[in-house]
Design a binder for these strands. Structure first.
Lengths: 321, 321
DNA sequence: TGGCGGACTGAATTTTTATTCATTACTGGA
DNA sequence: TCCAGTAATGAATAAAAATTCAGTCCGCCA
């Protein structure tokens, strides 16, 4: 009885608040009940399940997969993009677009963006990036050298400068190959003051945008001048390397894999990467499943941007529609 | 595409806010989006129907009937009580209880309560009134005289004093019969300074609690000493009187019905009544349908407390379960 | 017949949210 | 090409809501 009266009042308050859109103060005035009590009644309405708030998931968004990824891999955020078909091209388009949107909404001035210079996903992202509304970002730092092949060098440079341009930032190029021909060659390159200046910036990177590579010749790697010889690749595989970020390799469980190659790579180190506020991994496609999983397990990535098919596989679930 | 990205973000924000219970500022920090924008995204979530808020109506409450009554009759509030069966006794119990709860939640100090002294509903209300939690109300004013029959006089007095006691207020009794035997008798009674003092308070009443009477001998009227003779009742009927509040009569369409009887009644007038901040009508039962409807049409009541059966009939709808 | 703990309350205050404001960029038309 | 109008943003602020606080009233137990 008394309980019913109580419930009636709560229901009425709930109705006024949520349906009629009245403010608590207005309700307070109408019912001659203090605003504090109205607030408390509304809280009880939630507790007693008189108001029920449901989220109507729009088509093309996958909060469940995202939550799954966040929880399973301890990610800060996960973005799962809608994607027509489970093929490289379609996926690149989807995650590039998603990454572009992410970037455009989340950037704040004084952001120092680090970008790994060669990655098909990042390329797509930059291509999808709308002329950025508001002035954004302070600097864009290239955190991985280009390729020995001059044509790809240009490619990497383009990526960095374009992003800088679009974000109104200062580009900071790393004019060096991603992989030097020898330890000595690397040392020599690091002597260059411009190279040093850029590498000094690695620690200032607040937002790192990185691809995640699988250990196997990808199309791009293949066409980009055979960074590694088949023997070197084999060596990596033998060491248990499953994937890489900026040519820094790690095993299936995420532990770093150190090989002599490390000493020839010119890029941000995995440790330096962890110093960034946010590391955004942008990758998808069945070919990369194991590499992505490894990267997630290693905790190298705070935010993952991928497609629904890959997300589904990472969670061992079927992808949504 | 861009739209999907947008929707994904809104969905994510909605999820964080409503499901995870994060504050906008926290979301803002996590997503690197300003709090203002988070607020705007949440508003869009409502607009775009991504959050859906539904009210789960508890058993025994009838928001639809209440809303119907409010809208149909322009009431400030309507309270419809659950009620086992459509019989006098059951209804009295239901609305008395509801009225008691209403009173206990809505009273504020400095309230001057006017109470029409004889009404079965009000009697029930006072009986149901729990020893009032907090000190409440300033004064309780009797706004209708008692009955000629001394036993009922006591009754009326009891009602007023009890209510005053329960609300910690000062009782202001109207020591006079509700109906004087003649115009002259009334005039004489009004000469009494106590009576005058009380009647002067009528204009200060902030909350009036009134029953609504049907024009026909009710059980109580019958036993309370035949206030009116059968002839007088017939006269009222002939004048079109359909109901009364404090023995002030009105027709089916709510217009006041003036008869010579008026000059013998000692109670607040309908005009004075309208001066009160809130007039609460407490009534139910098929016998009173027409009277209640008339009172509502006349706008004499701001707040109606009734039972689900009566409410349903007033709206010409079947009552709920 | 106190006295203690718990439950409630409204006023005051703090916290949270919505909105205003100034700025910027972009649009579409002359 | 230049300009008026629209849209969108973050910082600042106003508005709204939640919570703290102090006080009261219980009921319960000694």
């Amino acid at each position: 009885m008394a309980r019913t009266n109580e419930l009636r009042l709560i229901t009425r308050v709930t109705q006024m608040y949520y349906l009629e859109g009245l403010k608590q103060a207005q309700i307070s005035a109408i019912l001659n009940i203090s605003q504090a009590t109205i607030s408390r009644l509304l809280k009880r309405a939630v507790d007693e399940n008189i108001v029920r708030i449901t989220i109507n998931v729009p088509r093309g968004t996958f909060p469940d997969l995202e939550t799954g990824l966040r929880e399973r891999f301890g990610l800060k955020e996960a973005i799962v993009a809608e994607c027509g078909e489970d093929r490289e091209e379609s996926i690149l388009s989807a995650i590039g677009d998603a990454a572009a949107h992410f970037l455009s909404t989340t950037l704040n001035d004084r952001e120092v963006i680090g970008i790994s210079s060669w990655s098909a996903s990042l390329l797509r992202m930059v291509d999808s990036l709308p002329p950025l509304k508001r002035v954004k970002a302070a600097r864009v730092v290239q955190i991985l050298g280009g390729m020995g092949n001059p044509s790809v060098q240009v490619h990497a440079t383009h990526l960095t400068t374009r992003l800088a341009q679009l974000t109104g930032a200062q580009p900071q190029l790393l004019s060096a190959p991603g992989v030097a021909s020898s330890i000595e060659a690397r040392r020599a390159l690091l002597d260059d003051s411009f190279v040093q200046a850029t590498m000094d910036e690695f620690r200032d990177v607040s937002l790192a945008l990185v691809g995640i590579g699988a250990v196997e010749p990808s199309r791009m790697l293949a066409t980009s001048g055979n960074v590694f010889t088949p023997e070197e690749l084999q060596e990596l595989k033998d060491s248990g390397a499953e994937g890489d970020i900026c040519l820094r390799f790690f095993a299936a469980d995420g532990t770093p894999v150190r090989t002599p190659l490390d000493d020839r790579v010119i890029s941000i180190s995995l440790d330096e990467l962890k110093g960034a506020d946010r590391v955004v991994g942008i990758a998808g496609g069945a070919r990369k499943d194991r590499a992505i999983k490894a990267a997630l397990l290693g905790g190298y990535v705070d935010i993952l941007i991928t497609d629904k098919f890959t997300a589904g596989r990472l969670l061992g679930e079927p992808a949504g529609t």
